[in-house]
Amino acid sequence: MRVALVIRRPAWFPCAQSVIDDVFFPVRTHGVRHSRYSILAVAGMVALAACTPHDGTNEFNDPYEARNRAVHDFNKDVDRGIVRPLASGYGRAVPGPLREGIGNFAGNLSLPGKMANSLLQLRPGDAVENGVRFLVNTTIGIGGLFDPATRMGAPEVETDFGETLHVWGFPEGAYVELPFLGPSTERDTVGLIVDMALDPLGSALGPDERWIGRGTSVGAGLNKRFTYSGTIDEVLYDSADSYAQLRIGYLQKRRHELGRDAMPDYFDPYDDPYATPYADAYATPLEATDAQ
């Protein structure tokens, strides 16, 4: 209730601190860790207010390109030297069903944080779906190792604090590539920090359990790197400009996620202004090549 009131206020920057304190940290069990993150988060939010608004689907705003490219080269070295060999070893050594179980387990632990974000976005239906999922998979799915909830019609609703900021009306900000973490935007970077601080389940667990959570999410990440190695390798190592490919890929995917089912502003190549001199693609010179 209090959350809803805060969000509806038009001038809500002064409220940012109280939103963070009241909603995310009602119980200060790990005061030091939390307050450090909350200061970072608020600093990030203030920085976001200065971001230029941006709505285009295929456009990008990349004022930090030079620095981003340096980080990109670093990330590629990390992938080549550490992540890719590790993922390949993990994928070959650990049998598929076990990797899947570890991925399910890590995904299950992330659900309480997603529920909190859905509530902050005033999407109670999403929160309930992930809540049902969490209950079903934790019990019937044996602590989250199995995923019966998807078969029962409650697939995971993907969300995070970056989306919450989007719902609250914050602009995307500039594109950034983060060391180790990869492509992001200014808004999603703030979201990432808040999500780390938010982690309601992590706060409820003891330090040992938290390490299990982190270990399994590393496993889940390695499994993703292994499963999608074809596409990831192609983007990183086979494209002419891997930085530009990753940037356009990330931004399109992210905007698509945030837009939910909204009809995007599709580009019509048949009306392409660059193509006017050759308006008829089927004119004589191309006819021969088109014939199958």
Binding site: N58, Q245, I248, G249, Q252, K253, R254, R255, H256, E257, P264, F267, P269
Partner: peptide, 8 residues
């Protein structure tokens, strides 16, 4: 997943 061939 939102990533389109023409733009890429």
């Amino acid at each position: 997943e939102g990533v389109n061939m023409l733009a890429s």
